[in-house]
């Protein structure tokens, strides 16, 4: 007794069934999704965001490895949009705010749902699944004021008395600015 010889057929069947499931979903699905062409929006996001994923070069997710832009005085600084997105990920904003108007009546309230190609090159996409708070995909169009976002993040109930968002007064001023810049960039 012992060994797996008597289960040869069972083992082969198991690997075949599970392998087929992975092939059909991840394999065919992955090739399909990987071949979607990038839209103009996706290319713009790639320029500003760079890689927003956790990296060994930026272990505390401060935005140290974000793409650089040139300021008016000629100095190079991290793109605040990319830094803002990194803070959005680090602080887990996406656990309440989705970045995905659904393909239903969301059209009317939160604006048009994205196209498949809008996400090409973005990682992580943080589209979220649990909408305890408004969708933010087009927040920059709804609320274009930097000052409002700055105040809202510092003290949410000063601008919206019924808000259940927690206050982010512990963020550094530069981080608050980057986050607000990211919000305004979401047109």
């Amino acid at each position: 007794m012992g060994g797996y010889k008597e289960y040869k057929i069972g083992v082969i069947m198991f690997l075949a069934v599970f392998g087929m499931a992975v092939f059909m979903t991840i394999g065919i699905g992955g090739v399909y999704l990987g071949s979607v062409p990038a839209t103009q929006l996706a290319l713009e996001k790639q320029v500003h965001y760079g890689s927003s994923a956790w990296s060994i070069r930026d272990p505390l997710m401060k935005g140290w490895n974000q793409p650089k832009i040139q300021k008016a005085d000629g100095t190079m600084v991290s793109d605040p949009v990319g830094v803002g997105k990194k803070i959005f990920i680090r602080e887990g904003c996406w656990h309440c705010h989705t970045l995905l108007p659904e393909q239903t009546s969301d059209w009317e309230y939160f604006g048009a749902p994205p196209l498949a190609g809008d996400f090409v090159g973005e990682s992580p996409t943080v589209i979220g699944s649990d909408r305890k708070a408004p969708d933010l995909m087009h927040v920059g169009s709804r609320m274009p004021s930097m000052a409002w976002h700055l105040q809202h993040h510092k003290d949410p109930r000063s601008v919206q008395a019924k808000s259940i968002m927690q206050s982010f007064d512990f963020l550094e001023t530069s981080e608050l600015k980057a986050l607000a810049t990211y919000m305004v960039s979401l047109k």
């Binding site: 699905g29 992955g30 990987g34 994923a53 996400f119 090409v120 990682s123």
Partner: peptide
């Protein structure tokens, strides 16, 4: 076997440059 494969596939976007909807789907 299945959880090891599942966890590995979930970690692929962390380990390799998989982006966009493909990443969200994985």
């Amino acid at each position: 076997v299945m959880i090891w494969m599942t966890y590995f596939i979930g970690a692929i976007p962390d380990l390799f440059p998989v982006t966009g909807l493909n990443e969200a789907y994985m």
